[in-house]
């Protein structure tokens, strides 16, 4: 499905390594299966040839890795950024979370990444190999003699079905053609939740969040969550909690987290991608984004470096708190 190939990326990375522009490469490393791809640092051309992979399962957003990795290397790190990753990249720069001088960013086009859970929902367990063939995907499993041929668009990850932009908002160099900010239907699900009664909405979130095992993967993968020490990890903070006290206690963790990333969340979708319990966490964040758009005018976190998010910026046109309450009353 991807238009850019592994070979093109290795070629680019090898050149930049060989001519000394960068000292290492942040890329995806192939695992035991075609879909189990691990973010990794590659130091040599040989390492790239051996383990670098680029396929429809290279969803991990590398921006956040730059916070830790830029402090550790001499010279520059080459990072490949999909359009959505570039928003996180800018947002992190806005927050001074890494040194721009230590990064060489190459924008790469993206046709949307696949979700292995969706592949398995169609083809079953026992996936042995996944190949691409234009708009189709071939899936060989333990249980069929012939590989299944499925439409790549049927297994797109949720965030890619609702992609908001094919445009890269940050890079040093771009591979392939630049895309545009696109119309998406990403607020449709939020609108459905808004249309529910308060009780229905409560039941919806209770059902979803009661599955949370508090593994913190959502927080740890989130590029907006970059506190050196999260308040929830600090045993002396009084709110540190390694596990839910009851089946809905997690709402606090999630609501606090959603507030903390409000205005900074770029809607990259990493939280929902990594959740082992398939909780649609992105809907919480999108609700905040939708509200901010409606209250303060359209705002996309990470669109430019240095933007001031509406929640931390005061203008005389700002909505009065009372108006928010009025709106709530007419909604209910």
């Amino acid at each position: 499905m991807q238009k850019i190939t592994r070979e093109q990326l290795i070629d680019k990375a090898s050149k930049l390594l060989s001519n000394g522009t960068v000292s290492c490469v942040l890329g995806w490393k192939l695992g035991d299966f075609d879909y189990d791809v691990t973010p990794a640092v590659f130091n040599t051309v040989e390492e790239l040839n051996e383990g670098f992979v680029f396929n429809d399962f290279c969803g991990a957003n590398f921006s956040k890795y730059l916070v830790a990795k830029t402090g550790k290397v001499d010279g520059k790190i080459l990072v490949f950024l999909k359009p959505c990753d570039t928003y996180s990249f800018n947002q992190l720069l806005t927050e001074h979370r890494f040194d721009r001088e230590k990064v060489y960013a190459v924008g790469i086009p993206c046709e949307g990444m696949a979700d292995i859970a969706k592949v398995k929902a169609i083809c079953g367990e026992g996936v042995l190999a996944i190949g691409t063939d234009g708009e189709k995907m071939t899936v060989a499993t333990l249980y069929s003699d012939e590989p299944a041929l499925i439409d790549a668009k049927d297994v797109l990850a949720e965030r890619c079905e609702n992609c908001k932009s094919k445009k890269h908002v940050a890079y040093d160099e771009l591979l392939g053609e630049e895309g545009d900010v696109i119309e998406s239907n990403r607020f449709d699900e939020v609108a459905k939740l808004e249309a529910m009664s308060a009780d229905e909405r409560f039941a919806f979130w209770q059902n979803e969040l009661s599955r949370c095992i508090r593994c913190n993967a959502c927080r740890d993968a989130c590029p907006a969550c970059t506190c050196e020490k999260c308040v929830f990890d600090n045993p002396t903070s009084g709110v540190e909690n390694k596990s839910p006290a009851n089946s809905f206690e997690e709402k606090l963790f999630h609501i606090i987290r959603a507030y903390h990333v409000a205005g900074r969340c770029t809607d990259c979708g990493e939280c929902s991608r990594v959740c082992p319990q398939n909780i649609p966490l992105h809907l919480l964040n999108r609700k905040f984004i939708k509200d901010m758009n409606e209250f303060y005018g359209e705002y996309q976190a990470g669109a430019e470096v240095g933007m001031r998010a509406p929640l931390v910026d005061y203008t005389t046109e700002d909505l009065e708190p009372g108006e928010v309450f009025d709106r709530r009353d007419t909604d209910a």
Binding site: T38, A40, Y65, I213, C215, A217, D220, V274
Partner: peptide
Amino acid sequence: DELSQSCLGCGTCTFV
């Protein structure tokens, strides 16, 4: 070093 370089420390593996 290499095996742990990208680990997020999330603990998902231990909880499941």
